[in-house]
Computed example of a mutant assay.
Amino acid sequence: MTIDKEAAERLANSFGAEAARYDRTRPPYPEALVANLVAASPGPRVVEVGCGTGVLSRQLLAAGLEVLGVEHDERMAAFARGAGVDVEVGKFETWDPAGRAFDAVVAGQSWHWVDAEAGPRKAADVLRPGGVFVALWHVFGTPKAIADAYVAAYEKVAPRMQHRVGHDYDEAFEAYRAGCVRTGDALVATGAFGEPVHWRSDWEQVFTTAEYADLMRTMSPMALLAPEQATRLLDEVGAAIDAIGGRFTQRYSTLAVAVPRR
């Protein structure tokens, strides 16, 4: 699906309207990767890019790090603050660190929203020598019956907006793996970073029909649908889940790229 700049901006701003739902449905990050991140950081001071409601920030705080979130959506920032995360509002590329330097720059499910040229340069600017940049993404794949129902529903309600990301696990994994490589290469190209290291953690999560509908409501393509289109899509996917017993297991991998600051 190709979208224009205006639609992309709508997608980027769609999460805040569902901040509470987003926080309760979006999965946390595997503890093994959180431990890797803590071990890779030369100190406790972390800035999280696009911290959202603070899902990852809270895990890092619990691990003993000092976290500052940078989040462009006021609604998401307000939720994160209410959950105990210190947040400054702004886009990472134009955010003013006010002379502060950090041990780690972290982006959980957010780096693809950052400008591809300005983002790596800003990461280099705010990291102290020896610091580390880490970006993480969740990859998922639904059972075929549900994936097929999802695609069929889009063909009915919005045939020009078919959205397949994450339905085929192998296809999604390769896309995200390539994205991690590109992210690492872009930082290295600034001349300020060393060689990237890649991490991976595999896991599963069980969803009921209602739980998956709740999660789907937070997915950005839903923001491009009219309310009646969204309701019909959710009903059709829900019927497919009900048909296989009202619950299913979704396969996940979380991929991360860690790049050290020279």
Rank of each mutant, 00 (worst) to 15 (best):
R121L: 14
G84E: 09
Q109P: 03
A147K: 03
G131V: 05
F102W: 05
G82N: 11
G84D: 12
K91I: 06
D103R: 12
G90F: 09
A147D: 15
G119W: 01
F92D: 09
E74A: 14
I146W: 12
G130M: 02
E88Y: 12
A124L: 09
V87C: 14
W95P: 02
G141R: 00
G99P: 10
V106P: 03
A124M: 04
V89Y: 11
A118H: 01
R128N: 06
W137R: 01
F92A: 13
D96R: 07
D96M: 08
W111M: 07
D115R: 02
K122S: 02
P120M: 01
W137S: 14
G108S: 12
D125F: 01
H138C: 08
P120G: 08
V89P: 13
V70H: 07
W95Y: 13
G108F: 03
G82R: 04
R100M: 03
M76N: 12
H72R: 15
V106E: 00
A80W: 08
F102H: 04
H112G: 02
M76L: 15
A118W: 03
Q109R: 02
V132W: 08
Q109H: 03
R81F: 05
A104V: 05
E74L: 07
A83S: 13
K144R: 15
K144M: 00
V89W: 09
A104C: 04
G82D: 12
V70R: 06
E117R: 06
V126P: 08
D73C: 08
A118Q: 13
G108N: 00
A145Q: 15
P143D: 08
